[in-house]
Design a protein around this nucleic acid. Structure first.
Length: 115
DNA sequence: GGGGTGACTCCAC
DNA sequence: GGTGGAGCCACCC
């Protein structure tokens, strides 16, 4: 199976990290990319999320936002589903942006030291 | 192999 | 805080 193993591994690490996000907290694509040693690969994290629906266990991709706290993935979730999921966890969403983004932001580095 | 695209980020204004 | 431009890298024609 000669697929691009590097991106496969990167993909899996992204999933594992996203699954570690606590309920009611969010993080950003850039933060994940940085933790995985690819600070310039935030876009690839986004791409990984796009195909994350094929992964199991499921990945809570709705907890991953851009660096501004905007729901850039909203369209991919279809309508207001993403916002609903976030609000269901106690996160306040206003005008496609997470309120108190800095407060609910979850730093992935904490989990890395646990590995 | 070349060119366009994107669930991004940084920097300047 | 918003906007615009450049950089990045895998994916899909």
């Amino acid at each position: 199976m000669a697929v691009s193993e590097t991106s496969e591994r990167f993909n899996e690490l992204v999933y594992q990290l996203v699954r570690a996000i606590p309920e009611g907290r969010v993080t950003s694509y850039g933060a994940i990319a940085r933790v995985l040693g690819r600070p310039r690969n935030a876009r690839l994290v986004g791409y990984a999320m796009r195909v994350a629906h094929e992964a199991y266990p499921p990945v809570p991709a709705h907890r991953v936002l851009n660096s501004s706290g905007s729901l850039t993935a909203k369209a991919a979730f279809g309508g207001s589903l993403m916002q609903q999921l976030l609000e269901n966890e106690g996160i306040v969403v206003e005008n496609d942006r997470v309120k108190n983004f800095r407060k609910v932001f979850w730093e992935p580095l904490g989990v890395i030291s646990d590995w």
